[in-house]
């Protein structure tokens, strides 16, 4: 079942002026339910523009965005209700924190939805636990947290709205590997426990390979490829042409293969590589 359908969407910045620039050009694809989808592409390939259309922050110049089969712009006055159903975590979301405590900041979204106090408190606890923020963190000022914690607090702020689709634009940009893992694990937990669709935008092939089932590759304002993870990463040469390449571990397996080691080339995660290698060596340690 498709959750979000993007139909022939184009978007032009500053239309009608000398500075006119196409950010998206006839883009079509589907985001499936109960599935983590990755959108990958270069800086300037149009991915950030694209995600801002999912929740109606930007309106397509042409084409339609369907949520559960209904055009989200069917009734422009109710676009804010779409924003509760499609939660968008923008790039560097830690700069949007403003409340006195982390708890209050996470509660901002649910409060705008008009939920009851109890419901809000429960959702704040739940989303804080997804991203691994402790009870004592919740009482702190968001400005006293570390960079990684701030990021997690901001993501929890969106999760607390319990959106049916959680969209994250570069959630791991500028974080260390540990911080990255905590965030991706949190996203995974959210997806599993709520059954929501998740869309992750990134330019890191390794993150995509590890967490995403479906992948959409953007290049020069267009969809270059779309499909299951294996279908995408087996087209390594094309990906390199776009300038993206394959995950590091896949590259390593390929190099081994070229050196005459009999190993599969369709390995995209470290876990799979470990399995294949230990099989190769007869399970000997």
């Amino acid at each position: 079942m498709s959750k979000i359908t993007v139909e022939n969407v184009s978007y032009v910045y500053s239309g009608g002026t000398p500075f006119e620039m196409a950010a998206l050009n006839d883009v079509s694809f589907e985001i499936k339910e109960n599935c983590i989808t990755g959108i990958i592409g270069h800086t300037g390939s149009g991915k950030s523009t694209l995600v801002q259309m999912f929740n109606g922050l930007l309106r397509p110049s042409s084409g339609r965005i369907l949520l559960d089969g209904r055009d989200i712009w069917e009734n422009p006055k109710e676009i804010s209700s779409i924003r509760y159903r499609v939660g968008l975590v923008m790039q560097y979301p830690e700069y949007q924190l403003f409340e006195e405590t982390v708890e209050a900041d996470i509660a901002f979204g649910p409060k705008n939805m008009g939920l009851s106090e109890d419901e809000i408190a429960e959702r704040v606890r739940e989303s804080a636990s997804f991203v691994g923020l402790s009870e004592s963190d919740l009482k702190k000022s968001p400005f006293d947290l570390s960079g990684g914690q701030k990021r997690r607090a901001a993501i929890a702020g969106i999760m607390a709205m319990r959106p049916e689709v959680l969209v994250l634009d570069e959630p791991s940009a500028g974080l260390d590997p540990a911080g990255k893992n905590t965030i991706f694990d949190g996203i995974k937990k959210y997806a599993e426990s709520t059954g929501s669709a998740v869309v992750i935008v990134s330019h890191s092939m390794d993150d995509m390979a590890k967490y995403c089932e479906d992948i959409i590759v953007m290049s020069h304002s267009r969809v270059a490829m779309k499909g299951k993870r294996n279908e995408i990463f087996c087209r390594g040469d094309e990906l390199e042409e776009i300038g993206l390449g394959v995950p590091q571990i896949t590259l390593l397996m390929r190099l081994l293969c070229e050196q005459g080691v009999n190993i599969s080339q369709d390995i995209y995660t470290v876990d799979d590589a470990e399995k294949a290698l230990s099989e190769l060596f007869g399970g000997a340690r």
């Binding site: 922050l57 949007q96 979204g109």
Partner: peptide, 16 residues
């Protein structure tokens, strides 16, 4: 630019 970004981020959280 920053203002626009923050406004979008808060709109995404239901600010009106």
């Amino acid at each position: 630019e920053e203002t626009e970004k923050i406004m979008s981020a808060q709109k995404a959280r239901g600010a009106d």
